[in-house]
Nucleic acid binder design. Sequence first.
DNA 1: AACCACAGGATTGGATATCAATCAATAAGA
DNA 2: TCTTATTGATTGATATCCAATCCTGTGGTT
Lengths: 256, 256
Amino acid sequence: MSSRSQAIADILTRAILDHRLVPGCKLGERELSEIFDVSRIVIRQSLIRLADDGLAQIERNRGAFVARPSMQDAMEIYDALTLVEQGVAAQLSDRLGPAGWAELRQHVERQRQAVASGNDALADVLGQEFHTVFVRLSRNKVMQEIHAQLVRRTTLLRSLITADFDYCNLLDDHARVIELLEKGRLKQAMELIDAHHRSVVRGYIMDRQVFPELTPREALEPYLDTKAGEAPQPAPRKKTGDNGKARAHAHDHAAK
Amino acid sequence: MSSRSQAIADILTRAILDHRLVPGCKLGERELSEIFDVSRIVIRQSLIRLADDGLAQIERNRGAFVARPSMQDAMEIYDALTLVEQGVAAQLSDRLGPAGWAELRQHVERQRQAVASGNDALADVLGQEFHTVFVRLSRNKVMQEIHAQLVRRTTLLRSLITADFDYCNLLDDHARVIELLEKGRLKQAMELIDAHHRSVVRGYIMDRQVFPELTPREALEPYLDTKAGEAPQPAPRKKTGDNGKARAHAHDHAAK
DNA sequence: AACCACAGGATTGGATATCAATCAATAAGA
DNA sequence: TCTTATTGATTGATATCCAATCCTGTGGTT
């Protein structure tokens, strides 16, 4: 392990991405230091890392809070994500070998099986991972890190929306992007990527404030015991505005 | 100002970008804490920020060093920069209004005047700034920050090269990119951006190690007095392998 | 002389206690 | 009721201390 503050930053990041720590939530140094049983200094360093990553916001003499991106921020993040993925798509359409295309198709197939077998949680994860795999094939670690950061911020954004949308028509986007790219129809693939992200962000309805429901202590409890071992995957917090239709298509959302 | 550690991180960043702190240079906590007259903890926080930005590298129990990117890193950074700038170019070719084009042309014109009047230092700065202005016109703060980070890392890379190249044929790239974009010849503009960055990184000859020449204390001295006021622009360190030809075209390099 | 092992020093990572500055919220007063 | 002052809580930062680790230099061995 690199350092305690990095480990704690990772845990906080996971908790935020799992929507257990919601935007606006106060991240008090004393409270966190008691939860993790470390000194305040280590917590400060963790919070600095989170702030650099855009997941937390530090206000002088007021403390750190889980970032509360604005609607403007959301659009900019999705714009940047679109730009990056379009660029990667352009690179891959030139450079990617058969093994790469096979890996992508295999990933989509696994996700499709997960959806078919009703394993929504797995489908969620695979859907998220697709983008990561996609960018990894560019073999550019710098680009990967930039993209990963943007993905983290989009995941944070999902804490801020109440209404989900109908994503049925976008279920097979991954497969279609692969297909278009492999056929050399780069422009269409890029337009598809753009259209998809655009429709996602257009569907966003952001709340002025989200209600925590979980104290930081409760939110972080599941991550604690693992000193340096396996990471148990605690179930993400259930969505509050849980209307049936939205829930029915939730995996489509995370699935891209 | 936000915090002491941020201010110090900014100073360290500037010193690195000015090539006063060269890659591989040890950034000892005790030494820096004495230089800046703050506690070691503040320095640690600053170093974490630098590491998150890719300008420093922290090795456990060994300390922090100015990052020493590999040739592979250099290519990846330039690839990412190309990707970003191409993407922004695509956006601007659609969305940018006349005022934007005018601002770009005006910037190029100012740089041209600086070159004509032999003010190489100013030409350098303007040449760097062009990219920043270019990306700023996308009106996307997220993208701006990503781009700025990449630019910082390319500036760091320049500490690692000894041989400069002949950039005469690329002097007017900025103007030509603008021209092509405004005419809607997006593809050609993107190819020009790519070709330019490619030729830059191909010309890189990286040294295994760079010799510091300046102790951290000497390197940081010019930045110190300014508690919170104006930032004096200390002259960048003269290049060591200073052969006439390289020097003669140095401004072309920084000018892009 | 070359090489390995061990001890010591130096440095980092972190804990604790303490202090000043600032913000927030309550309590006092007009 | 509105304004102001005090109090409490939290952050920013310092100093000191301790443990773990790395580096080095010495000394013994071959």
